[in-house]
């Protein structure tokens, strides 16, 4: 039986996040040909509706309200439930982002439904859809399904291929009105610490530094390489604990779990807790001066050497390549 699926589109700095397009692709599989309705929530989101359609949504509903400028679970919860009441979907897809992680369990509790979080792959379609998700920080995977009630999943960014954008597609974008009131949390201030732009969870390339970078300045060449490749920087806990960088950069079992196309580990020994956060990356490069370092066991390519020599050489080499291309 085909399903009507609603997909929560996520807006960051005025633009739709890639994970929203990936969520539509996931919804397509779950829907088995059913209708896909994009949802946008914020203070001014109407204009982004067509883009969700171009990526595969059949139509879009929006909830706009001044109280929805900043995400709060109460505000977005009320907005989402207003849409839910109108649409009565059989399935729901969110991105497994800070927002999706915060909001999805609240909605699932309201709906008394199951929720499969952090899905990296979907096998089968419609009623036969089986969801694959990492457990034990990616040291293992489980396959699960929801047999009854709403099929509700959050998908991990960067794992499910979005559909190609089709500028010729058009669909209805309509507003739903909702009462947004009694917010028990108020956002007072937001300090942006993340390095300009590229979010680690969505980055195609991550250049990560460990205790081997020796100090906060040691991240500079890594940052330059990351910028050159359009990627983000990350870190081991060793580097965070030593105060070389912010904990928000930590990758591993008690940090972020990432799966970029290219992970470059510089001055990271490869402790099991670190590997848990990055070993499912598509291609791993290790740069370490210790040939015995554990990181070489998971690396596709390794260079035994001083990162302060190797990274600048890589920067030069890649610049050359770009000039020649």
């Amino acid at each position: 039986m085909s399903k009507k699926v609603i997909v929560l589109g996520e807006v960051r700095d005025g633009a739709l996040r890639n994970v929203s397009f990936e969520a539509i692709a996931a919804a397509k599989k779950i829907s088995g040909g059913g209708e896909i309705v994009g949802v946008l929530i914020g203070d001014s989101v109407q204009d982004l509706g067509q883009e969700l359609v171009q990526y595969g949504a059949d139509r879009v509903v929006t909830v706009e309200h001044p109280h929805l400028k900043h995400y709060t679970s109460d505000g977005f919860g009320q907005a989402f439930m207003a849409v839910h009441e109108q649409e009565e979907p059989e399935a729901i897809v969110f991105g497994h982002t800070a927002l999706g992680k915060d909001l999805s369990p609240k909605i699932a509790a309201k709906l008394q439904s199951g929720l499969v979080s952090d899905v990296t792959e979907i096998e089968g379609e419609d009623d036969d859809a089986v969801f694959i998700r990492p457990i034990y920080s990616g040291k293992a995977f489980e396959k699960v399904k929801i047999n009854e009630g709403t099929v509700f999943v959050t998908i991990r960014p960067n794992n499910i291929e979005p559909l190609a954008q089709d500028a010729d597609r058009s669909g209805d974008v309509s507003a739903v009105s909702a009462t947004i009131q009694n917010l028990r949390s108020v956002v007072k201030d937001v300090v942006t610490k993340a390095t300009d732009g590229v979010d680690m969870s969505e980055a195609k390339v991550i250049v990560a530094g460990g205790r081997g970078v020796k100090g906060p300045e040691g991240f500079e060449p890594l940052k330059e390489l990351a910028d050159l490749l359009g990627g983000a920087i990350g870190a081991s806990r060793g580097a965070c604990d030593a105060d070389y960088c912010d904990y928000s950069l930590q990758i591993g079992q008690t940090g972020k779990v990432v799966t970029p196309d290219l992970y470059i580990a510089a001055g990271i020994s490869g402790a099991i807790q670190h590997l848990a956060g990055m070993s499912n990356s598509k291609v791993i490069v290790a740069i370490n001066k210790d040939p015995e370092a554990n990181i070489f066991k998971v690396a596709d390519y390794g260079i035994v050497g001083d990162l302060f020599e190797v990274i600048p050489m890589m920067i030069e080499e890649i610049k050359q390549l770009k000039v020649n291309a």
Binding site: V130, K139, K143, K145, I146, S279, F296, Y301
Partner: peptide, 23 residues
């Protein structure tokens, strides 16, 4: 509400290539 149908380990990562020669 969620039925677990399988648990499996990720494919063992083959140790890759450590490059050699002049840096």
């Amino acid at each position: 509400k969620v039925e677990r149908v399988d648990i499996f380990l990720p494919p063992e990562k083959q140790a890759g290539r450590v490059l050699e020669g002049d840096l």
